[in-house]
């Protein structure tokens, strides 16, 4: 059984300005049948977050299907939510609750009595157990949001641009954490703009543009292909730019 199976996903929105239908996701398919880190790359507005939100059950699926561990997201969203962990692009929490209280609360949402201390030590925040989220630095906030996504020991962890806005130290620290989680047997799907991140972390990437996956494969294979064509040393960023173009995106 595949861990994640996405077939021909479709999503369109009514553009409030033009009053026309905007195809945000147009026939996205991919298959993850082994534990890995899968990166979805793409410029702004490519449809990465919408794709993720459809698999997470946050957004209705207009067409196609998404299954996690064989469970259809559209038919059994609550069952899927039981086995996935989600870190959103921006994470806000209830006021005046400590990290420990928030983790216990999130655990309760999954009917789990979790050991907050243990979970916080996993993300290197043990000493902040009584702190409030607003007292954390950017990197600490991201690590805490991952801790919240781990309360149910998920099979698949979704990370939406996890390192955006972090300094290099915090970024490398988070990459280390993501690798450790993957080594412990967790499949991770992440979206990112950061090519270095994708190259360092991902076993497989899909580059999206205009709602479609335009290429999918192992980062080194994609780089090798373009190096063969250009005859010089390239990186994932060159691959990305050669496929998506150099025009500015909103």
């Amino acid at each position: 059984m595949s861990i994640v199976e996405v077939i021909d996903l479709q999503k369109s929105y009514l553009d409030p300005q033009t009053k026309n239908n905007f195809q945000a996701v147009d026939g996205v398919s991919f298959l993850l049948d082994e534990v890995q880190i899968f990166g979805i790359l793409g410029p702004n507005g490519a449809g990465k977050t919408t794709t993720l939100e459809m698999i997470e059950g946050l957004t209705d699926i207009d067409g196609g299907s998404a299954c996690v561990k064989g469970i259809n997201v559209a038919n059994n969203p609550f069952q899927v939510k039981e086995i996935i962990g989600v870190q959103l692009q921006s994470n806000e929490y209830f006021d005046s609750l400590s990290l420990e209280e928030l983790l216990i609360l999130f655990g309760k949402l999954y009917q789990n009595n979790i050991d907050a201390k243990d979970l916080l030590s996993k993300v290197d925040l043990s000493e902040k157990i009584n702190a409030k989220p607003e007292e954390l630095s950017g990197g600490q906030k991201q690590r805490f949001s991952i801790a919240c996504a781990l309360v149910n020991e998920p099979t698949v962890l979704f990370l939406d641009e996890p390192t955006t806005g972090l300094d290099p130290q915090a970024k490398h620290n988070l990459w280390q954490l993501i690798k450790e989680l993957n080594n412990s047997g967790m499949t991770i799907i992440l979206t990112t703009h950061n090519m270095e991140e994708a190259e360092t972390l991902c076993h497989k990437v899909a580059i999206m543009d205009k709602g479609q996956i335009i290429i999918e494969g192992k980062p080194l294979d994609l780089i090798h292909d373009i190096e063969t064509k250009s005859g010089k040393k390239e990186n994932l960023e060159t691959v990305f730019l050669s496929l998506t173009g150099r025009d500015l995106r909103d």
């Binding site: 939510k81 039981e82 959103l88 806000e92 949402l109």
Partner: peptide, 14 residues
């Protein structure tokens, strides 16, 4: 407004 409901919605809470 603060996205707290969205954060809750990705959990199995009814």
């Amino acid at each position: 407004r603060r996205g707290i409901l969205k954060r809750l919605f990705v959990t199995p809470i009814r």
